[in-house]
């Protein structure tokens, strides 16, 4: 049991097939992430990285298998519970277009707090107000709150937008941060700086980081590096071989 508690993500014989597709994209006999770990997930385009993240974030449900995240078996969650679970426990950063153009920078960062009491409470744990916490995270992301708060989201550079997205993922200290190729729209200098900022804050929040990219050059600073094709047992034609226990 101690072992289970040490794992924040645990996949057991998970298979996922997109609706209408003949073959499964994912067939993962076993995969887990420990608490506090910073995992780099690599894989070629179309190999199913985003699909895997959707499964872990309880946006999609596998046809078979069990996924446990932060000690919750996702299979036991129903409809709205999944959305609540996601916003309570997971911070997400996408490749791009992370921000809602019709909201201010601050409202974008506070978006998870709109839907999650946990995140709201956690964000204010140090006696700070939501606004103060949002500004603190901006500062941590090397953005001047006085500067970006007054700008429309769309006028920020891509790198700035990604950092705002990280601030949103981090607000309220969710135990798991999932980032889906957050750096692929950035140049290599900015990438390195971005990852450093991300690491610092993930560490400060004592969160676990699952970071996806197809660019292996970023992998060196991570605790662990996982190749998706290594854990995903599908044959070339996509037929799923029987999995032996």
């Amino acid at each position: 049991m101690a072992d289970a508690a040490a794992k924040i993500v645990d996949l057991d014989h998970v298979q996922y097939t997109w609706p209408g597709e003949a073959n499964a994209v994912l067939n993962i006999p076993g995969f887990s992430i420990n608490r506090g770990e910073r995992v780099f997930l690599r894989g070629p385009s179309g190999s199913g990285k985003t699909t895997l993240l959707s499964l872990i974030a309880a946006v999609l449900s596998p046809q078979t298998g069990r996924i446990v995240v932060d000690d919750v078996d996702l299979g036991t969650l129903r409809g709205g519970q999944k959305d609540q679970f996601r916003v309570d426990r997971i911070g997400l950063v996408f490749q791009q277009f992370n921000l809602l153009p019709f909201l201010s920078v601050r409202d974008n960062i506070l978006l998870p707090c709109r839907f999650s009491k946990n995140r709201r409470n956690e964000a204010c744990r140090n006696g700070a107000s939501l606004v103060e916490e949002s500004d603190r995270l901006l500062q941590a992301m090397n953005l001047a709150p006085s500067d970006v708060n007054n700008k429309p989201v769309t006028s920020l550079s891509v790198g700035q937008q990604q950092r705002v997205a990280v601030a949103r993922a981090l607000i309220g200290r969710p135990p798991l941060i999932i980032a889906d190729e957050p750096t692929s729209a950035l140049d290599s200098d900015t990438q390195q700086a971005f990852i450093e900022l991300l690491f610092n804050e993930v560490k400060a929040a004592r969160s676990t980081l699952l970071f996806v990219s197809h660019d292996a050059s970023l992998a060196s600073t991570f605790d662990r590096r996982v190749d998706l094709p290594d854990i995903n047992i599908i044959t070339g034609s996509g037929t799923v071989p029987a999995v032996s226990k």
């Binding site: 974030a57 946006v59 959305d83 996601r86 916003v87 309570d88 997400l92 996408f94 992370n98």
Partner: peptide, 16 residues
Amino acid sequence: RREMAVLRSAGARPSH
């Protein structure tokens, strides 16, 4: 659609 994805990632339900 990407706005919808962002909203979903931030905990918005499909019903939202």
